[in-house]
């Protein structure tokens, strides 16, 4: 299909430029919120050393999940080219959402997901479906967050201790759903237990880190306990799978 700028191409420079502008916009938003939060934290006498530790630990923790997200980009690239998956998985999207959404849209259009989209209209339809399909959370946050936070604040004002228990319960609700998910395949046999063993290894590594930090006073490890446990368990998933798979 020919448009204002010629033949449609999944990896055309135009698509990279538009995606790049949007990624830069979101980076600008991140810089804005980072500066505001950092300044306010300093006003509240949170030391710069603590903030730097938080930033460093967050950066290190992000590496492994970000590589998994990058693999989501690779998975979509053959079908949608580079710019759209790059954009969607750098900002707004989620690796658990983009592939199903793109697949559903492709099925409606009768386009195979195993090869690159060649038709511009099919591509834009998929891009619109992927965009409009995930936008609800952001709309709710934009319109209602002030009210939601007002509700949480008034809950805490009425009973501060219950307010804290309420938020702890929210964490545990999320964690319990993902921990339950790990057991979803155990009925298929020993291979279904692999994720359970990996989770246990990760938990044991975290306990070992706790021992190093609290008993042996290896203080630096406190900031990196989560990425150490996570990467260690991912590495050990390889021999566990080879042994049981």
């Amino acid at each position: 299909m020919k448009g204002l700028i010629g033949e449609f191409n999944l990896n055309s420079p135009l698509l990279f430029v538009i995606a790049g502008i949007i990624v830069l916009f979101v980076m600008a938003q991140s810089v804005f919120f980072l500066i505001k939060a950092w300044r306010r934290a300093r006003e509240l006498k949170i030391s710069a050393a603590v903030l730097k530790r938080v930033a460093g630990a967050s950066a290190v923790f992000t590496v492994a999940p970000a590589i998994a997200i990058l693999m989501g980009v690779f998975a979509l690239t053959k079908f949608l080219g580079l710019p759209l998956p790059w954009l969607r998985l750098s900002v707004l999207g989620a690796v658990t959402y983009e592939l199903p959404a793109a697949t559903i849209a492709a099925n409606v259009l009768g386009v195979p997901v195993s090869e690159g989209v060649t038709n511009a209209q099919a591509y834009t339809t998929i891009a619109w479906v992927m965009t409009l399909g995930i936008i609800s959370g952001l709309i709710v946050i934009t319109i209602f967050l002030k009210r939601i936070q007002g509700g949480i604040d008034s809950l805490k004002k009425r009973d501060a201790r219950w307010g804290q228990v309420f938020i702890d319960a929210l964490f545990l609700g999320m964690i319990s759903a993902f921990m339950g998910l790990v057991f979803a395949d155990i009925r298929i046999g020993i291979t279904g237990w692999i994720p359970v063993f990996v989770m246990l290894v990760s938990a044991l590594l975290m306990l070992a880190c706790g021992f190093f930090v609290r008993v042996l006073k290896v203080k630096w490890m406190e900031d990196y306990a989560l990425p150490i446990s996570m990467l260690g368990a991912m590495a050990l998933a390889i021999p566990i799978t080879n042994l049981l798979g």
Binding site: F178, A203, M234
Partner: peptide, 8 residues
């Protein structure tokens, strides 16, 4: 196994 490794 990234999710089990994270949530463990």
């Amino acid at each position: 196994n990234i999710l089990p490794a994270l949530f463990g």
